[in-house]
């Protein structure tokens, strides 16, 4: 996903002279060719993540569109006040493109994990959040992000669904209609969710743009007011918004995602999926219990 996005950004630099790629010592090799063609518009600030966001704000200040890229914790958590003050409060925009997701590189440990990212961005006003589940979907989001003026977040992952889904911008897509409840699968959670609910009578919706969340489609496809939202980041991040969509009805909402506990574990991504109950078998059991709660 990262490689495809880097290649596409390189091509976009050729045609859009407002675009500037900002790096902080991460993924620099992937942008080497683009940098050779556009030495002024591929800027590596080194390991200076506060400056990374501040400089991006300055670029936006003169009317350029910065695309800012590094590992999620160093893009969002270390310079969080810069996101709040230099971008949001100033009314300046940027495209923030992260890698690493919740635990894509488990061998690096917790410092490189960022299951908090979407929850943190929820604390800021007006940030668009996109969680593609396939490289084609990630690349397809780039023109819209480049053309926008606000703050947009593109969460890239090493995890990917087997095939891309054709989406209309900003909308959820209903993949299956069922009668016992709804499951919203976000980005790379789609394949595990489809496996998990293959024999369950549920509606399945797919989301890659989660902020703003397409509440209308949740309502329109609702057969039974029980909605589970399965996200590849902190469990419950979108539960409040789903509940907001159903506020006029008695309803049940379940947030499924990454747990808050620091596991102090390395290993592989699938082992972390298992540890957080995000493998198909665990998801099947969690969703089944939610649909038929014991009284």
């Amino acid at each position: 996903m990262r490689q495809r996005v880097a290649e596409e950004l390189g091509r976009m630099l050729d045609h859009d002279d407002r675009l500037v790629v900002m790096l902080a010592a991460i993924s620099t090799a992937l942008f080497e060719a683009a940098r050779a063609r556009h030495p002024q518009r591929v800027v590596n600030v080194g390991i200076r993540e506060q400056s990374l966001i501040g400089v991006a704000a300055g670029l936006a200040h003169v009317g350029l569109r910065p695309v800012v890229h590094t590992f999620a914790p160093f893009l969002l958590e270390r310079p969080f006040e810069q996101l709040k003050m230099d971008l949001c409060h100033q009314g300046l925009g940027a495209v923030l493109v992260s890698i690493g997701a919740s635990y894509d590189f488990p061998e690096y440990g917790t410092s490189h994990f960022c299951p908090e990212d979407v929850a943190l961005l929820d604390a800021l006003p007006g940030v668009e959040v996109h969680v593609p589940g396939h490289p084609d979907e990630a690349v397809g989001l780039l023109p819209g992000l480049a053309a926008a003026t606000g703050v947009g977040y593109l969460r890239l992952s090493e995890a990917s669904n087997a095939t891309a889904v054709t989406m209309s911008a900003g909308r959820l897509r209903v993949l299956r209609q069922g009668s016992q409840g709804s499951v919203i699968a976000v980005g790379p959670m789609l394949d595990p969710v489809l496996k998990a609910v293959s024999d369950l009578d549920v509606t399945v919706m797919y989301a890659i743009t989660v902020r703003p969340l397409d509440e209308a489609t949740i309502l329109e496809s609702l057969a039974e007011p029980a909605v589970a939202v399965v996200e590849p980041y902190l469990a419950g991040t979108s539960a409040g918004l789903v509940s907001h969509a159903l506020a006029h009805l008695p309803h049940r909402v379940l947030g499924v995602g990454v747990g808050r506990r620091d596991l102090h574990r390395y290993g592989g991504r699938l082992e972390h999926d298992l540890a957080h109950g995000l493998d198909p078998a665990s998801l099947r059991s969690t969703i089944s219990r939610f649909l038929r709660p014991s009284r």
């Binding site: 500037v20 002024q40 518009r41 800027v43 506060q50 400056s51 966001i53 501040g54 400089v55 991006a56 704000a57 300055g58 670029l59 936006a60 200040h61 003169v62 009317g63 350029l64 006040e81 810069q82 003050m85 230099d86 100033q90």
Partner: peptide
């Protein structure tokens, strides 16, 4: 208001003006 933000923004403005 929050201290230590202006210089990086100024650096970005200077970089942006040079790009333009």
């Amino acid at each position: 208001g929050s201290l230590g933000h202006g210089l990086a923004i100024a650096v970005g403005i200077a970089v942006g003006l040079r790009i333009q």
